[in-house]
Amino acid sequence: MSTHALPSREYVLDALHEVIDPELGYNIVDIGLIYGLEVADNLIKVTLTMTTPGCPAQDYIMEGVKQRGLRIPGVQDVDIHLVWEPPWSPQKMTPIAKAHFHIEDDTP
């Protein structure tokens, strides 16, 4: 049994910044691919999407999230749920990612 304390949600999100969408060349958190994150009982549950269905890098991004999650002290398993609803759009990016891609912010 792990002796590490359970990582905070913030800590896990920080770690997932190291996983990139290779085509856009930006971390998946700021691109807005992470739809949900739960941390409980040494388990991370990540709900994520892709920029386009059938993305060739899909399996590698999912595996990357799993591997990065497993490197966090105290985490024993990473459960990944890939969803397509609601569909991803550039408006799901954080302001810094939008600024990087020169995307106008449409949010009211």
Partner: peptide, 23 residues
């Protein structure tokens, strides 16, 4: 470059620093 990235660097994602396709 995209297929090269998948072939050469895809499996390192989450384990190590990887270049972007643009790199």
């Amino acid at each position: 470059p995209f297929l090269t990235w998948i072939t050469r660097y895809g499996h390192q994602l989450g384990r190590d620093a990887v270049p972007r396709v643009q790199d």
